[in-house]
Design a protein around this nucleic acid. Structure first.
Length: 203
DNA sequence: CGACCGATCGTCT
DNA sequence: GACGATCGGTCGA
């Protein structure tokens, strides 16, 4: 198990990074408790030219500032006042690319995930959808800015890899407000994986 | 299965 | 003051 290096995130191709993140492992360690899960669904957000991105039009606010920083850091924001959505900051300083983690497959610490989510059974709803991912892994908005190479949240690879045939691309979910950009094939899923979220065009 | 709805609050205008 | 990069439940067909 190796933590992904800074160079993994420091690329001028957020779509490639979103694809490459499939199969990688997110590991969180809060209060000494480890939970980990394999990424099976991602979405790319292509910075200032992407209407679906919070950084569209070079918008800089307290919330989005982290995306303008160096790559390999967490961008976590509150959605609908309830859900903490976990993103990975990509590309170099001043280029606000990000990848949203939309679904993972539990690996370690499932009992802790059940405790955090208040669920009884470890079925596919445990970590399906970006809100559930953060809830199960214990990620909150105040974790925004953590270094994914050295903090309580890490992303690593264990040698496992999905083949291109197992990966499908679709338009992103819930971004209708982005007009034409909502049609871009920036969502990446592992075909047939039961943890992949339900989308209009998804599985 | 699809449509709809309520929860809930930080962020931006 | 309005609005989400959502979720889970309910209701009707």
């Amino acid at each position: 198990m190796n933590v992904l290096p800074r160079e993994f995130y420091d690329r001028n191709d957020v779509v490639a990074i979103a694809t490459d993140l499939l199969g990688k492992i997110i590991i969180t360690r809060f209060d000494g408790v480890i939970t980990s899960a394999r990424i099976v669904e991602t979405e790319a957000y292509n910075g200032i030219i992407d209407k679906a991105s919070h950084a569209f039009g070079n918008r800089r606010t307290n919330r989005t500032e982290i995306m303008y920083g160096p790559p390999g850091f967490a961008y976590v924001y509150l959605c609908y006042g309830i859900h903490h959505l976990f993103n990975v900051v990509c590309n170099s300083h001043e280029i606000p690319h990000a990848v949203l983690i939309r679904a993972v497959e539990p690996v370690e610490g499932i009992s802790k995930m059940l405790e955090r989510t208040g669920k009884k059974n470890a079925d596919f709803t445990l970590t399906r959808g970006p809100g559930n991912v953060s809830k199960a892994l214990g990620i909150k908005t105040f974790h925004t800015g953590l270094d994914l190479l050295d903090s309580e949240i890490l992303i690593a690879e264990d040698g496992f890899r999905y083949s291109q045939k197992e990966i499908e691309k679709t338009p992103r979910i819930g971004v209708a407000y982005a007009g034409k950009d909502a049609l871009l094939p920036y969502r990446f899923i592992v075909k047939g994986n039961k943890y992949v979220s339900k989308g209009k065009m998804g599985i």
